[in-house]
């Protein structure tokens, strides 16, 4: 079975991630814990986008909005001295779902290029909102003075603990998305992606299903935002910058859309490439841009397409 090779590759990959902290500490390179924690946080965002983009065919160019909403939910609560992590993260998830509901309600009525432009535009709106609210730092952003507090349960200031929490959430989300897309619900959004006209003709109304998927993806990414602000201990409107949305999208495509492991593979590959290029030259975006164009032109199914067992039809 070719799919078995992919499953083994995924398990090996996750096992390596689990083994990373002790190895890094033994080698006295704690920097790698930090590095891969960042990778995994973005992988969570990519996993959530993959749900709607890869399986639902909704090309959202505004997914960074929920990183921002999640980040600001934590940041603003902390600013007013509320540092209970359960509350903060709950608000981050809830607020992201709510914003996704509003953006989705308008944008899912449209499709194709309209959908792309509208999701991008709404995210830009939130970005400008972030810039114009001076109270929370405006353009410059603000520091997160205390990390989210979980009492005796967890201490995020411990790098390894935080790392494993992120890994656990990543694995949980990958599993949740896997279950979702194979359930009745997931079959409807995949059907709507595959052939919308046929889907209506057999009696489905895809809109509510797509909207719920959009909300779930937003909520998941909102949690990634809450993690990200704790990771950087700093918050700026740049969380929601449109290039961030483009990057998350590229992570999904690079890894291979509509696959379980794709978003993780794509995220690690893209961020490693970015880090390598930027260590080498300040003009790394020039090369990243060329790389992006080449991938689209020549590697249509992303890195996952290079593994055996890929779908034959792009």
């Amino acid at each position: 079975m070719l799919t078995r090779i992919r499953t083994i590759a995924l398990v090996l990959g996750l096992a390596s991630l689990a083994a990373l902290p002790p190895v890094a500490l033994a080698l006295d390179e704690p920097f790698y814990i930090d590095l891969f924690r960042r990778f995994m946080i973005f992988a969570i965002a990519a996993v959530s986008l993959n749900l709607i983009l890869g399986y639902g065919g909704m090309v959202s160019f505004g997914h960074a909005a929920y990183l921002g909403i999640g980040g600001y939910a934590v940041g603003i609560l902390a600013y007013y001295g509320i540092d209970n992590g359960f509350l903060q993260w709950g608000v981050a998830i809830g607020a992201s779902a709510l914003v996704a509901l509003v953006i989705g309600a308008v944008s899912i009525r449209t499709s194709g290029i309209y959908f792309i432009m509208i999701t991008l535009a709404f995210t830009q709106m939130l970005y400008f909102l972030g810039i114009s609210v001076e109270e929370y730092g405006g353009d410059d952003g603000m520091s997160l003075l205390t990390l989210s507090q979980f009492g005796e349960w967890l201490d995020l200031s411990d790098a390894t603990t935080f790392y494993y929490l992120v890994l656990a959430i990543l694995i949980a989300f990958m599993y949740i998305v896997h279950r979702l897309v194979n359930s009745r619900f997931g079959m409807v959004i995949r059907a709507a992606k595959s052939n919308e006209v046929r889907t209506r003709a057999i009696g489905f109304s895809p809109y509510p299903y797509k909207l719920v998927a959009f909300m779930i993806a937003g909520a998941m990414c909102g949690l990634a935002g809450a993690l990200l602000v704790n990771h950087t201990a700093y918050l700026t409107p740049d969380f929601m910058h449109w290039t961030r949305s483009g990057e998350i999208m590229f992570m999904v495509i690079l890894g291979g859309v509509g696959t379980t492991a794709g978003p993780l593979v794509g995220t690690v590959a893209l961020l490693l490439l970015e880090d390598t290029l930027s260590a080498w030259t300040t003009h790394w975006q020039l090369f990243l841009g060329i790389f992006l164009v080449l991938v689209v032109l020549f590697a249509k199914r992303g890195l996952a397409g290079l593994l055996p067992g890929g779908k034959r039809n792009g």
Partner: peptide
């Protein structure tokens, strides 16, 4: 899928179809 379209709502999120 065509059977599912006429088997009540599809807000069932967990069990593999």
């Amino acid at each position: 899928l065509a059977v599912q379209a006429h088997a009540g709502h599809s807000f069932r999120f967990w069990r593999p179809a």
